[in-house]
């Protein structure tokens, strides 16, 4: 039981894909213009990660060693195509915003990395938990980064305007918004400081 729990929390805390392993940087930077976009990207990756981990773990004794990478890529690409078609049908708005980055989940290093490093060696149950943990860790990181960028860039989180008052002075975050955080440079800078904060908390 403790091993299962360990596998699950490993991806969320110790080896968080974004803050610990520093994998999958392209979608992390590109899709986190708002909290909702970051979360959608995280959830799409979570789905692919869980499904591919389970299938690859089931097939681990059947796939010949020589062709294991192409085999994994085909499995992953099939699930990515499914996500792509499902999102196109049921969430056209989000599909438009995430655009190119949905098919690019195929080349997200986390998915292939977990297939190779975990699912190819462990049982189905553990691989499922590993996929869930890693996927959730990725989703949480993207949502936080998206929320920070949305707050600093537009003064809102999940589309809700943030207003508060301290000692009788009321603040409307919209008045302090700096558009640069929604644009490309803001992605790099926000992630740099978030990562530094996580490093500081860890040590």
């Amino acid at each position: 039981m403790s091993k299962a729990l360990n596998t699950f929390t490993n991806g969320i805390l110790r080896e968080n894909p974004t803050f610990g392993l520093v994998l999958g940087m392209c979608p992390t930077l590109a899709t986190t213009t708002s909290a909702i976009n970051g979360m959608s990207m995280g959830l799409a990756t979570l789905f692919v990660l869980v499904c591919s981990n389970v299938v690859i773990s089931l097939l681990r004794n059947l796939i010949p060693d020589k062709v294991h990478i192409p085999a994994y890529i085909v499995v992953i690409a099939s699930f990515v195509t499914m996500v792509q078609l499902l999102m196109q049908a049921y969430m056209p708005g989000i599909y438009e915003t995430l655009g190119l980055f949905i098919p690019l989940i195929v080349v997200n290093c986390i998915v292939l990395g977990r297939a190779e490093a975990f699912a190819a060696k462990n049982s189905v149950g553990l691989s499922l938990l590993d996929g869930l943990g890693m996927g959730l860790g990725f989703t949480i990181a993207l949502t936080i980064l998206g929320a920070v960028r949305e707050l600093l860039g537009t003064g809102a989180i999940f589309g809700q305007k943030i207003m508060f008052s301290i000692w009788g002075c009321s603040f409307n975050m919209e008045d302090y918004a700096a558009l640069i955080f929604v644009l490309a440079p803001g992605a790099f800078i926000a992630l740099a400081f978030l990562m530094a904060a996580v490093n500081k908390l860890r040590s």
Binding site: V22, P185, I189
Partner: peptide, 14 residues
Amino acid sequence: KAMEGTPVALLTAG
């Protein structure tokens, strides 16, 4: 210390 490695590289890229 906390900025070493990837964070400072990201900041430079920014």
